[in-house]
Amino acid sequence: MACAQMVHLAMQCAALQPLLSLAIIQVDQFPERGQELNILGVPTTILEPGSQRLQGVVPAPYFAGYLLQAQT
């Protein structure tokens, strides 16, 4: 359920902020991508620019703050 919660949260944010784009990647179907980025658990969110990563589910304001921080 953690993956579903994180995807739900990110999609809600993307619908409010057009500068945010999302790629939702099923790591079991794209294992080479997961290995390349050293994905050790799900959900893992990686932001560009900055390559910051967030593991697990976080509250909505925390995620929005994390996005805001990533652009600086």
Binding site: L16, L20, Q26, V27, V42, T44, E48, Q71
Partner: peptide, 26 residues
Amino acid sequence: PQTDVTTRSLLEQISSRIAASIFVSP
């Protein structure tokens, strides 16, 4: 979308493009 006021306020402050990749399992 359904989000709280604080989250909306923070999202409004974003001024450059951000790409988020979320790795999940089904």
